[in-house]
Design a protein around this nucleic acid. Structure first.
Lengths: 199, 199
DNA sequence: CGTTCAATTGAGTCTGTTCAACAGCGGTGG
DNA sequence: CCACCGCTGTTGAACAGACTCAATTGAACG
């Protein structure tokens, strides 16, 4: 009941009939929506432990694509009802997941609507860092499984602006960039202040 | 168990301890979040039939303020548990509300991240129109209970840009503006195409 | 070693913002 | 009844910042 999804492949697509709920085991998934002319908004990155498969009226709401090689656990919706009856705790857990998701989306709406490029990137890095340790010890290495293009569409920026912003942070000594797929945070507090919109 | 909230007053505030769930009876509520320096993002407008009071770890996630005089129905969380046991259907209904909300927030994230001012305003008007009739008959009058400032913070624009954009639509003959608090849609199809990002 | 794709950098443009002035409207009080 | 005031919304001009387009660098792979 687990399935390997290669990097770039899709788990499901928007408007496709929803037959399964998925739980991410390893790797990372991006949820994205497209405008008619191709513009894309990545609404979330989902990793180990997260549940995906959001549906409305029986159809998925977004495209779900693997950012890197990813393993998901596939749960048929039919059997889900059965589980729920046997174990009501699952219902509670799923509801809790939805609350988290609402919170994250709201958080992200603030980012998209109000924040400057520097604040957006800062928020992105801090949020990623928090997934690793809530510990505020400086010097944390943040893995970026996705490419700049995904980050750009997530933050509502262009690839160029993301790149320039990271370069700026580098020159300010706030981060180091050992490779294209990881960023070392040197001054977490500064980033956190930016993320909150401190003047 | 119902309560009148005057225009501009708040139903609850972010970080306040969550003791109630609310259902909007009449009027309109805006959900908003603030950055430390005062920038504001309105994440949703809620009207009759909508449920508000989103909480995480026992605390509200946003400010909820009345856009105009509004009546809400207040449900203590304590008694909610009891209701849920007696009528499991309520659980289902609440879950459905959450799914709707997720969908709307995602929809809104796309707007904030990808769309141009004209597309944002077009989407806003079309969404409002859909609340009245899904009927695609042109010529619909959309009531705007909120001020330009709320619209601006909702769409991630400035008041000035909202105003200019509406003026532009007016000059194009797509809408008419009988008063500051209502907009008459003349060409709904055009607005809908803009909302979908048609080139 | 060459090819390819992603990321960076640069230059110029454009669009939304900022700052400021003006208009419209409703309420208040003389 | 009308003049005044405050608030909201509109309009104008100049600016700044992100975008676009193009060129360059860099890294991964055969």
């Amino acid at each position: 009941r687990t399935r390997l999804v290669k990097a770039g492949q899709s788990v499901y697509r928007e408007f496709e009939e929803a037959k399964y709920l998925f739980s991410v085991v390893t790797g990372e998934i991006r949820l994205a929506n497209l405008l008619d002319d191709g513009r894309r908004q990545v609404t979330a990155f989902k990793s180990a432990g997260d549940v995906i498969g959001e549906q409305k009226n029986g159809y998925y709401q977004s495209d779900a694509e693997a950012v890197c090689d990813t393993v998901v656990c596939q749960i048929p919706l039919k059997s889900l009802d059965k589980y729920l009856k046997e174990m009501p705790a699952i219902q509670t857990a799923l509801t809790a997941k939805m609350v988290d998701e609402l919170h994250e989306l709201r958080h992200h709406a603030i980012l998209l609507g109000c924040k400057t490029p520097v604040e957006k990137v800062a928020t992105f890095l801090v949020d990623r860092a928090e997934k690793i340790t809530s510990n505020d010890g400086n010097e944390i290495d943040v893995e970026l499984t996705m490419g700049r293009s995904d980050i750009a569409d997530f933050l509502g920026l262009t690839i160029e602006t993301v790149s320039r912003t990271i370069t700026k942070l580098k020159k300010m000594g706030v981060v180091e960039v050992p490779s294209n797929h990881s960023i070392l945070i040197k001054d977490r507090e500064w980033l956190e202040n930016q993320a909150e919109g401190e003047k």
